[in-house]
Design a protein around this nucleic acid. Structure first.
Lengths: 349, 349
DNA sequence: AGAGTTTGCTTAAACGTTTAATCGGCCGCA
DNA sequence: TGCGGCCGATTAAACGTTTAAGCAAACTCT
C-alpha cells in the first residue's frame, strides 16, 4: 500500500489553480518562464495548503539530498560540542541538514561510518579525522577540519598562532622561565601549538618542554608530574597544550603549596565549557569554530552546487586552505610574575 | 539534465540477469515469490556490481526515510556528547541515521528546528526538551529523553536514585554535615537529584542546600560561593548537582586551602567526559545512556515500523515510561571524613 | 501583412524503488 | 481430460519532483 498523502503536493496546488504541475514547480522555484501575475497566486496557494516540498522526490530527481555528513573521530571528545554546533549552524544556514557519523575512536569504524553516510546519499562530508585516517575512498566532496597535515582541502585553527598568542601573553607578563606542557610528542597539533609558544617567547624567556604521555608510560597514569620541582627551579609559568592539562597542572601546583597565578601562571588551550567556571577561571585560547565551520561548509556547498574544481579523489581543491586565527581568552590563572618574597619558597633567585 | 548514474541500480542487475526489476527487488528484500535458486544469483550479482539501494527512491516510494531526528536544547551542553553518541549507536544499529537539530538554547528556535527536521522527512524524533518546550506540533512519532515531568512517553535517568547513590556513598564515609549544591531551584531534574540525596542521608547527616543561580543573580556571575565558610562550619562534604558545579566547588575549596578529599569530599553528577581525567578525578554518578538511547530508539522504531499505539498527538504511548538507574563512579574526590584534629575547626565531636 | 521571436504554459519523461495485479505453465486431483 | 491452485516470474503503476521539449498565442520587425 502506497503511503496515503499527508500534505499537499505540487499536483494539488496545480489542480486547485487549474494549471499544470510544471508551472507550479517553475513558479515556486523561479526557474522557467512563468507570468509575473501567476507567481504570487501560486505562492499564496502553496502557503494556504501548507505545501512543503518532498525532499525525497526532489532528491530522486536531482540526485541531491541537501544533507551533509559530519564524521567525527569520537563524539565523546570534549571539543566536539563546539564543532558540532558550529557546523550545524553553518549548514542549516545554507539550507543543509547534518547527518552524524561517529566512529567511536576506532579508525576502521570511521571508514565504515563514512560509507554509511555516503550510502544515505549525503551531498558532502565534513570530516574531523582521527590521526592516521584515510579519507577519500568515496567520490563525494569532502572538507577536512583540523588536520593540518593534509594540505589543500583543509580548514583548521591556526594552532601555531594560538601558541604565539599564549607566548606573547606570558612574555608581556614578564615571565622568564616557562614550562611547556605537552601530552603526546607525536601530535602535529600539539607541536604546532608549542612551536608558536616557543617562537613568541624566544628572546623573552627560556622554555623547557615536558611531555605527559611518555612520562606516564614510565611512572604510571595519573602520577605526579613533578611540577613543583619546576616551580622551585624558578619556572613562573606553565603553558599547557590543552585546558585539561592546565587544570591538572593547576591542581598539582596548588597541592604543593603554590598559588595560581601569584606564584605560577597557568594557561590552557581550547576553552572547554568548564574553563571559565572554575576558580580561578582559566586563561586559554579558543578557536573560532563559527568561522571554521562556515568556511568548511561554504566550500563544500560551492562544490556541490556550482561545479567547482574537484580533483580526481573528490577532495575539495579550490578551498582557501585556511588557518583560522585563534583568540586569547585572558582570565584569572595568568598574571605578572611576582618577585615580592623570593624566600617564601626555596626557589633561588 | 538528470544526473548521470554513478552506480548500479535495480535495473542494471535485472538486465544483467535477464529478469525483471521487480524480481530483483523481491529477491533482495525477500518479500515476493522468488525461486530459491535465483536469490543467491541476484545477491551475488548485486555485490559484484556494487549495488547500493537508492534511499531516495525507496523513501519516495515507501514514505520512510530511515532517518531519525535528534533535537537538542543546546549542543554545547557538555552532556550532549554522551547522548549523541549513544543515540547514534542505537539508531545505526537499528539501521537508522541521525539528523541533528540544535536549538542553541532558545526554545522558539527549538520548534523551528523540529519543523526543519520534519520537513526533511525524518521518520521520528528523539527530543531532549528544554525546560518549558512544547513538543508535539507535528504528527511524527516522538520519544522524549530526560524530562521526567511528562509521563508516559519518556525515558530518563532515575535522577532520584542517582542522588540516593551519592547520599549513601557519603553516608558510608561517615559524613555528618553535607552541603547540597544546586544551580536552579526551578529545575525538576535537580530537585529530583537533591531529594534522592537527602533521603539517603537522612538519619546519617544533616544537609543544607545552596542554590547557585539565585546567589549569582545577587552577587554577580562567577562570584565566590563562600564554600570555605561552610567547610569551616563543619561541612565535610559537598554534593553538587552537576560535575560542572562540583569542579567549581573543588577549585574554590582548593583555593581557600582545603584539601579534597582529605578535608572536604566533593561529588558531582553526570560524569562529563573530562571528569575522570582531571586530577583528582571526580566522584560522580552517571546515566546509562546506552540503555536510555536503546529504549528511546527502539520504542520509536517499533512505532515507525509496526503500527504501534500512538495517541492523537503522535506521541509514543506504549513505551515503558522508563527510569533507567544511574551508576556511582567513585573516584578520588570523595573519601572518609578525617577527624584527626577536631580542633582545627569548631566542629564538636 | 507575413515571418520570426518571445511569452506562458503544457506534455511527457525521468530519477529508483516497491508492490499490487496479472499471467503462463506446471502440478495434482477428480 | 479438464480444472482449480500454486509457483515463478512479469507488467505496470505509483511516490513527488525537475526539466527538456513542444506548442499556441501574442508580439516585433521589416
Amino acid at each position: 500500500m502506497p503511503p496515503q498523502k499527508q500534505v499537499a503536493n505540487l499536483g494539488d496546488i496545480a489542480r486547485a489553480l487549474g494549471v499544470s504541475v510544471a508551472t507550479v514547480s517553475n513558479a515556486l522555484s523561479g526557474k522557467g518562464r512563468v507570468s509575473a501575475s501567476l507567481i504570487p497566486r501560486v505562492r499564496e496557494m502553496a502557503d494556504r495548503m501548507g505545501y512543503v516540498p518532498s525532499l525525497a522526490g526532489r532528491a530522486l530527481r536531482t540526485g541531491r539530498t541537501g544533507v551533509l555528513g559530519l564524521v567525527l573521530p569520537d563524539i565523546a571528545n570534549p571539543l566536539f560540542p563546539q564543532i558540532a554546533q558550529a557546523i550545524e549552524f553553518a549548514a542549516s544556514s545554507a539550507g543543509y541538514g547534518i547527518l552524524i557519523g561517529d566512529s567511536r575512536g576506532d579508525s576502521s569504524v570511521q571508514t565504515e561510518a563514512i560509507h554509511r553516510l555516503v550510502e544515505r546519499g549525503v551531498d558532502g562530508l565534513v570530516v574531523v579525522p582521527r590521526r592516521g585516517t584515510r579519507i577519500s575512498e568515496s567520490d563525494c566532496p569532502v572538507a577536512v577540519i583540523d588536520s593540518p597535515s593534509t594540505p589543500g582541502n583543509t580548514v583548521s585553527a591556526d594552532h601555531w598562532q594560538g601558541g604565539a598568542l599564549i607566548g606573547a601573553h606570558l612574555a608581556a607578563f614578564g615571565h622568564r622561565r616557562v614550562l611547556l606542557l605537552g601530552n603526546n610528542p607525536a601530535s602535529a597539533v600539539q607541536n604546532d601549538r608549542l612551536a608558536g609558544m616557543r617562537d613568541a617567547l624566544s628572546g623573552h624567556a627560556e622554555t623547557e618542554t615536558l611531555w605527559i604521555e611518555p612520562l606516564e608510560a614510565e611512572r604510571g597514569v595519573g602520577s605526579v608530574l613533578g611540577l613543583a620541582d619546576y616551580a622551585a627551579r624558578g619556572f613562573t609559568a606553565i603553558a599547557a597544550v590543552s585546558d585539561l592539562h592546565a587544570l591538572r597542572a593547576f591542581t598539582e601546583l596548588h597541592r604543593a603549596g603554590f598559588r595560581v597565578p601569584e606564584d605560577v601562571s597557568v594557561t590552557g588551550f581550547d576553552d572547554f565549557s568548564w574553563s571559565g567556571v572554575i576558580t580561578p577561571a582559566l586563561t586559554t585560547v579558543r578557536a573560532d569554530m563559527q568561522r571554521i565551520a562556515a568556511i568548511a561548509v561554504s566550500s563544500l556547498v560551492r562544490v556541490i552546487e556550482g561545479r567547482d574544481n574537484v580533483d580526481e579523489d573528490g577532495l575539495v581543491v579550490s578551498t582557501e586552505a585556511a588557518r583560522v586565527p585563534m583568540q586569547l581568552i585572558a582570565r584569572q590563572t595568568s598574571g605578572p610574575v611576582r618577585r615580592a618574597s623570593p624566600e617564601d619558597n626555596d626557589k633561588t633567585e
